[in-house]
């Protein structure tokens, strides 16, 4: 009983990072739908905890289970390919992210954004460490052409002015 409660609390504590991961995996699109996916993932993980599934004996078991669920749900929803291009108001990195295939996007986000180790990320995605590194390498290569230099104040002004229009 005590272990179940701990797992449920662990799941609860993972909600903010799960939302961040789901939103990033959808490349900033479908905000409400991303939250719904997280909710479904948590409900599935909670159901597994209550059913005492043996796979939940490892460390971070509930959290990993939720991440796996989110990944699977987003893959179901968006498919394996790139997403439709977000609007120009999204940051450059988000636009680049949307252009990546799903597996590369998930690998990059689990390692960079969620701080997963290579082994944990590979396990979450159900791939080997070697495959994960290959996906990570391809993702970074695809994003390399983006001009991600830190913004200077003049850059910010230039970016802001891109949204201004003369209306009269």
């Amino acid at each position: 009983m005590g272990q179940k409660c701990d797992l449920l609390h662990e799941l609860e504590a993972a909600i903010p990072s799960l939302r961040r991961y789901a939103r990033a995996l959808c490349a900033g699109a479908a905000l409400g739908a991303a939250d719904d996916l997280v909710q479904t993932a948590i409900e599935r993980a909670a159901a597994k905890i209550r059913a005492k599934e043996p796979t939940l004996c490892e460390d971070n078991a509930a959290r990993l289970c939720a991440y796996r669920s989110v990944t699977a749900l987003v893959r179901e929803k968006t498919g394996e390919g790139a997403l439709s291009k977000p609007s120009a108001q999204h940051p450059l990195i988000v636009q680049g992210l949307a252009g990546l295939p799903f597996s590369e996007r998930a690998s990059l986000l689990l390692v960079v954004l969620e701080g997963f180790s290579y082994d944990l990320a590979a396990e979450t995605l159900g791939v080997t460490r070697y495959v994960l590194l290959a996906q990570l390498r391809r993702a970074r290569a695809a994003l390399s052409p983006l001009d991600l230099r830190p913004f200077t104040s003049s850059d910010r002004i230039r970016r802001a002015s891109a949204y201004l229009r003369v209306v009269k």
């Binding site: 799941l11 909600i15 939302r19 939250d35 719904d36 909670a46 992210l97 991600l148």
Partner: peptide, 25 residues
């Protein structure tokens, strides 16, 4: 790239979760 990704999505983790997600587990 890493810094840009964190800057773009970290604020989401700082938001209070919506009511539908609170106590979901």
């Amino acid at each position: 790239q890493n810094a840009a990704l964190r800057t773009a999505f970290e604020p989401i983790a700082q938001e209070p979760p919506p009511l539908s997600l609170r106590n979901a587990a």
